[in-house]
Nucleic acid binder design. Structure first.
Lengths: 248, 248
DNA sequence: CGCAAGATTGATAAAGATCAAGCCGGGTGG
DNA sequence: CCACCCGGCTTGATCTTTATCAATCTTGCG
């Protein structure tokens, strides 16, 4: 039952990490994600400067937030995994301050701010869960700032891989040490603030060190403890649910 | 009356940007900040790995969040200005994933999570305001990621200055083009991911270009439009309250 | 087959880090 | 009151990391 939910509705699964959901809460969340649509990869969901179209709930696939700079660089701010997203803040912020785009084919359900507002009255637990998930996500942004600003290219890339691995594992998308990661080297570079060429060379170096492989959109972490050490990665900032901490 | 509040209680002032506060809300917020204490500069309020001590409300001065990396670098994640902070997330996250420290002498009021929880029932408007303020703050983190990852040292530093200027102005702490900024060049470097020496050289370059001066802990922006252009800065991501947009 | 996107390689240039001094100004102790 | 000390600022020289430029290679696919 739980496992069915885990794959069927990653949003419910995620919120259960933070709050207890009643049957009625679960039903409401199922409604929220009932009419999802498939979106191709490399499609913009929201554009900087526009009024947000709605609150997107990612059910499968990978999405990113990015910003274009005046020097022509695209900077990927963060990746969003299934069950994340839910831009609750569109209720507050009138304009998108960044773009939102799919990296791969995705299942996405888009709801109106009004729908969320209704939850506030009828399902306060859900709102608390969403708020908590958002607080946890904020810490990923903070670590990202430290990572980009403070580490050299190779550990920086390794750090990103470690983070994605733990986040994937958390939602059951990385069974073993290997998972599907539909990113190009260009994407990787944009995500950690280096050029694609340098990303390529850093990747090679990690490969040669026997830490991981990354072929055909699949990342395999060969030696996680060593990769973590090399990349100065500690999962504390992810605030993993305590029960599942041991399982990783 | 409003102006008195502006200086007296920056938290109330900030929340008014997002929600309408009843007299009772205002009273509750005044209570919240009633017993503040003075804290010297360069003092840690929270340490990474510890259980948070409480929710700190910054009433005057500058605080920063930072992380120490294994390579010995200190990375400043973000600066917090009066009325900000209010780490509401300590209710959710059991351990600090970063350090919190004063940069200058500060007025700080520290309250318990329970106090905040009580607000949830009695003053839902306050909670909404806090949540909104937090969403707005998150966009600062996103821009910080783009700034560090995507711009060269000089515009990067200029961008930080622009941001601090707008944020100071927003809370009435920068009357003219000049404001007190109690940071060393070392701090600046740690905040934008460069060495102190390079921060020094970047600063000189901005000075020579006639864009600003920064002497004795005081920043004076000589030519804001040109500095913004040079630094690829646009204030949209700050989500300034619409009424005050024109005034800047 | 041949194209196009992505990956790879090598050579060179630029940005930024590091190392090593010197300077300047405010605070302290004799 | 002055010498000195120390933290922060400044400068120059050198080294490392990363970007840029220019190809070439590989591979999935129409």
């Amino acid at each position: 039952m739980l496992d069915a939910f885990r794959f069927k509705n990653p949003l419910i699964n995620r919120l259960k990490n933070f709050v207890d959901l009643s049957n009625s809460d679960v039903a409401a969340l199922s409604d929220l994600t009932a009419n999802s649509r498939k979106v191709e990869g490399r499609v913009d969901l929201e554009r900087e400067g526009d009024e947000p179209r709605g609150i997107h709930i990612l059910l499968s696939g990978i999405v990113c937030r990015y910003k274009m700079l005046s020097n022509g660089h695209r900077r990927i701010i963060t990746f969003l995994l299934p069950g994340e997203l839910c831009d609750v803040h569109v209720r507050v912020l009138r304009r998108m301050d960044h773009d939102l785009a799919t990296m791969s084919i995705c299942d996405i359900s888009t709801v109106t701010p009004r729908t969320i507002a209704k939850l506030e009255d009828e399902h306060p637990n859900i709102m608390r869960g969403l708020a908590s998930a958002n607080f946890a996500f904020e810490s990923i942004l903070r670590e990202q700032i430290a990572n980009i600003g403070g580490r050299e290219a190779e550990p920086r890339l390794g750090h990103l891989f470690c983070e994605l691995y733990y986040r994937m594992k958390m939602i059951g998308l990385s069974g073993g040490p290997s998972f599907h990661l539909p990113l190009t080297q260009n994407d990787l570079g944009d995500a950690i603030g280096i050029t694609a060429i340098h990303a390529n060379r850093s990747l090679q170096s990690l490969r040669k060190a026997g830490l991981l492989t990354f072929d055909g959109r699949r990342l395999t972490i060969i030696d996680l403890p060593r990769l973590e050490k090399f990349s100065d990665f500690t999962p504390g900032y992810l605030h993993l649910p305590p029960m599942k901490n041991g399982g990783i």
